[in-house]
């Protein structure tokens, strides 16, 4: 997957969690949590969706890598390079 594709994948998953999520003003280097009102339960959803869709196993200690859109892409890029 390209960086752009990974970005869309994350946004698609978030939209699936919260259909009212507003991406208009989303800043890719700022925490998703504050901008989109996500809580730790929602983050687990992102992890579980990645597992379901791409068989990715993300260990708990790596969850901080999912903080912002950019950090998600950086973290997932090597993992999804063949996807």
């Amino acid at each position: 997957m390209t960086r752009e594709e990974i970005k869309s994948l994350i946004l698609e998953i978030i939209e699936d969690i919260d259909e009212e999520a507003d991406f208009e003003t989303l800043q890719p280097d700022k925490p998703l949590r504050d901008q989109l009102d996500l809580d730790s339960m929602d983050f687990l959803d992102i992890v579980m969706e990645l597992r379901k869709r791409h068989q990715l196993q993300i260990p708990e200690e790596d969850y901080p890598h999912l903080a912002s859109l950019n950090s998600c892409v950086n973290y997932l890029e090597p993992l999804l390079k063949n996807a």
């Binding site: 919260d18 009212e20 009102d37 809580d39 339960m41």
Partner: peptide, 10 residues
């Protein structure tokens, strides 16, 4: 969004 009821439904 943060209310327990809505979190539960989500």
């Amino acid at each position: 969004k943060k209310a327990p009821l809505n979190r539960l439904l989500r």
